[in-house]
């Protein structure tokens, strides 16, 4: 498309999955109202959920999932060598995600529980940025298709790619939701990055922070709020650890 004198090129894109449920990639085929327009932006080179064609001349690589095997590291490094822009796509890729739960137990125990009697090669989960350089992240479990569309449009038009810096509360209040804390639950909305349109809390489910921390979160104040309301610190700990997205923020602070 031509715009004000310069032409937009289609994005040569590929999508790859690692340790994940492929749910984020599936989101790309969602939101039918704009699906044809969305696909029109893309020149899909390699994406097994949408196309049987496979080419290796992509510019943008969407990486879904975290890394939990040695062969995944090698595959990812090869993708990095080809891609001009590598995107950590979804919570597992950005933070490790639910897969990181494994780190709470001895590895042997986990294998015995999940794959009894089977030889399985596995290691502790790595997020994508621990293995290769990530150009930017689109968090979410699953990703928000509306946001993905917005970001793809930014890439196609040469606009800056940004994520909201503020927490989910802003979007939650715009939905006129009753605060989950008022309903007696621990909700990670106040410390989680917005952009999901508060979809969970609108459905009366507490936020588990799949989009990771918003910028400059005030963890001590958040922990104090949980204590002051006489809610369970163990539950807080469990929620914060759920997606492994708050690594580095100590929720035991007093």
């Amino acid at each position: 498309m031509k715009h004000l004198g310069y032409t937009f090129e289609k994005l040569k894109i590929a999508s790859f999955d690692f340790t994940c449920c492929e749910g984020c990639q599936l989101q790309l085929a969602n939101r039918e109202s704009t699906l044809t327009d969305f696909l029109e932006l893309l020149d899909i080179r390699n994406f097994r959920e949408l196309s049987s064609e496979q080419h290796d001349d992509y510019d943008i690589a969407l990486i879904e999932g975290s890394i939990s095997r040695q062969d995944e590291i090698e595959r990812l490094q090869a993708i990095r060598r080809q891609a001009k822009t590598l995107v950590a796509f979804g919570t597992c890729a950005c933070f490790g995600g639910v897969n990181s739960m494994k780190k709470k137990f001895p590895l042997k125990e986990s294998i015995a529980e999940v794959y009894p009697g089977m030889p399985v090669q596995t290691m502790l989960v790595k997020k994508i940025c621990e293995v290769v350089k990530v150009d930017f992240s689109i968090p979410g479990c699953p990703v928000n298709k509306e946001e993905v569309e917005r970001i793809m449009v930014c890439l196609a038009t040469g606009s800056h790619v940004t994520l909201p810096k503020h927490p989910v509360c802003v979007e939650c209040k715009a939905q006129l939701n009753t605060c989950m804390f008022e309903l007696g639950e621990i909700c990670l909305g106040p410390i989680t990055r917005a952009g999901c349109n508060a979809v969970c809390t609108t459905g009366k489910t507490s936020c588990l922070g799949c989009r990771g921390p918003s910028e400059e979160i005030n963890m001590p104040a958040f922990v104090k709020l949980v204590k002051d309301r006489e809610l369970s610190l163990d539950e807080l700990q469990e929620k914060i650890a759920f997606y492994n997205a708050f690594d580095g923020f100590n929720s035991h602070e007093t």
């Binding site: 927490p167 605060c179 001590p220």
Partner: peptide
């Protein structure tokens, strides 16, 4: 300010 969560709730309501 040390208590504030920067969540913007006050301004929204």
């Amino acid at each position: 300010g040390n208590k504030c969560l920067n969540c913007g709730t006050c301004a929204m309501v």
